[in-house]
Structures are given as C-alpha cells and as structure tokens.
Computed example of a mutant assay.
Amino acid sequence: MSTATPTRPTAPPGPARPRPARPNRAVRVGRWQIYVPLALYLLFTLVPFYWMVVFAVRPRGSTSLLPWPISTENFETVWNGLGFGVFFANSLKVGLASLVATTVVALAGGYALARYSFRGRTLFLVAMLCTQFIPGAMMLIPLFEVFRTLDLVNSLWSLVVAETVFQLPLSLILLSGFIRNVPVELEEAAWVDGCSRLRGFLVVVLPMLRPGLVAVGSFAFINSWNNFLFALMFVSEQDKYTIPVGLAFTLGEFSVDFGALAAGGVVAAVPVVLVFAIIQRYLVQGLSAGAVKG
C-alpha cells in the first residue's frame, strides 16, 4: 500500500515586485525645456565676460580667441599708468563707508518701525517706497547745492552721503521686516532677566538679523561700487575718481585701448564676484527665509 508524501502548503502568491519605472518621455522633454534655455542664457551672460578677460590678458596686437600666452601688460598699464590703484582705493573707501552708514541707520530706523506704534507709520513707509521711483539724475542739482553749502563738493564724503540717502529707504524697509519677524517675547524675556532695551537688542535680536544685515550691506556696497553718476558729478579731481569714472576716462577721443579698458573692467568686477561668492549663503537666507529659524 503506497502512501502519498505530504506536500508543503504553498504560500499564496504575493504582490508582484514593481519594475523600476522608466523615465517618462514627457519628463525628458521637460528637462530639455529647462536646460536649453538655461544654457542659452548662461552663454549669453558669460560670453561678454569671456571676451573681457581675453582682451585683458592677451598680448597687444594679438587676435587669438584663446588667451595664450597670458600677458599682464594691460593690467600694469591700467594699475600704474592710468592710476587705477588710486581709483580702486577710492571706490573701496566709498563702498565700505556707505555700507556702514546705511546698515547702522537702517537698523535703528527699522527697529523703530517694527517695535513702536506711532501715528503716520504707514504713511512713512509708503513715502519711503515712493522715493524708489525718483531717478537719481533728478536729484543732482539739489544735492549739488546742498554739498556746495556744506563744502563737500569734490570730496569722497559727498559720494558716501548721496549713496546712503538713496539706499536707505529700501534698506530700512527690509530690516524692519526682519526685525518684525523676531518674536518680541524674546526681548521681553531679556528685559525680565535685567537687560536694558539696548542690551536686549544687541544680545537677542541682533544675532538673528545676520542674513538681513548681510543682504542690506551687500546691496549697499555693490551699488556704491558701481555708481557712476554721482562720482562723475560731485568729484572733479582725478585723484578722487572712483573706478566707474576711471573706466570712462580710458576712452580716448579718437581711439580706444580695448586691452586697458578690459583690464580695468576685470579689476572692477573681481571684488564684486568675491563678495557674492563669500556671502551668497547668507544672501539667499536673507532674501528668502527671513531672520528667524524654527
């Protein structure tokens, strides 16, 4: 008599393992739709800078598309012959002074707008915004008369004052928004612990405003560095020119030294590129996330 061997019960078939999804054709098309415009925009943006670097570092008389062999003749001509060392120092002084003045005044005014309620605050903010629609060229004659009365014409301080006045409204509004995002309860806790209002602001609020301060300060410095109109109108002596005015005076009446002009452009662009490379992390935080985390 034969006995049948017992069979193991088979487990019910489980769900089929999903196959890895292939990239959708629509997704691939969508990526090309993003990358191609970005590549064209990048090419359109970088080609002028490439030609500026090529003209600056290639030898005089060369027509090569590649900057080889590299020559520093144009930089020596610009820095020593045309006085760009003095122009660079003047631009640096004006930029740093405008940065400090704009940041300090905007910080004090922004705190007042964010923490105090007073009659006319909304009207004041609207007036600050409206000043951004006034072109700087319309204010040249009034500013010149003011600076002439104060004996600031042909002085770098006139550039610092003008740059601070024109950059202050937007900086004040930005910093007031950052300070408003800081909970007032943090300051009140510091007051309970014995801090004065000033010390509470310096210890509690100011460290949280780092992204906003970097954003405001960087805009103030870059705008002062690149400003041409005020430096052209309020300064007449060559030893007080800034870089934009110095670049304009490299253009001759009947000829243009493209190598020297390109070298001056490189000298003017390098500090701006370095500033943005160093502060880009804080700049993005300051323009997007605000001043408070968590």
Rank of each mutant, 00 (worst) to 15 (best):
A162G: 14
R148Y: 03
C130E: 05
I141G: 05
L152D: 12
L152G: 05
L159I: 07
M139G: 09
V126F: 14
I141E: 11
V161W: 13
G136H: 14
L140R: 03
V153K: 02
V126T: 12
Q132H: 02
A137P: 00
L152R: 12
F147K: 11
F133N: 02
E145K: 10
M139T: 02
E145N: 08
D151S: 14
E145S: 09
A137K: 01
P135N: 02
C130A: 15
F144M: 09
M139H: 00
M138V: 06
L150Y: 13
V146P: 05
D151L: 11
V153G: 04
E145P: 00
T149S: 09
I134G: 10
P142L: 13
C130W: 07
P135A: 06
M138R: 00
A127G: 11
S158A: 14
V160P: 11
M128N: 06
A162R: 04
W157A: 13
L152P: 07
S155F: 04
S155N: 15
V161T: 09
V146S: 03
L159P: 05
L159T: 03
T149W: 07
F133S: 03
L125N: 14
N154S: 01
P142N: 04
L143D: 08
L150W: 15
L143E: 13
I141A: 10
V153T: 02
M128S: 02
L143F: 15
A137V: 15
L150I: 04
T131Y: 00
V126M: 13
L156C: 13
M128L: 04
Q132G: 12
V153I: 10
L140A: 07
S158D: 02
L125E: 15
I141D: 06
L143M: 15
A127M: 06
L143S: 12
S155D: 15
L143Y: 14
L152H: 14
F147I: 06
M139Q: 05
A137L: 13
L156I: 13
C130T: 11
V160E: 09
M138N: 12
M138T: 10
F144L: 09
R148L: 01
W157K: 09
L159F: 04
L159C: 03
L140P: 02
L152N: 12
V160G: 08
L143H: 12
N154L: 10
L129F: 06
L150G: 15
Q132E: 14
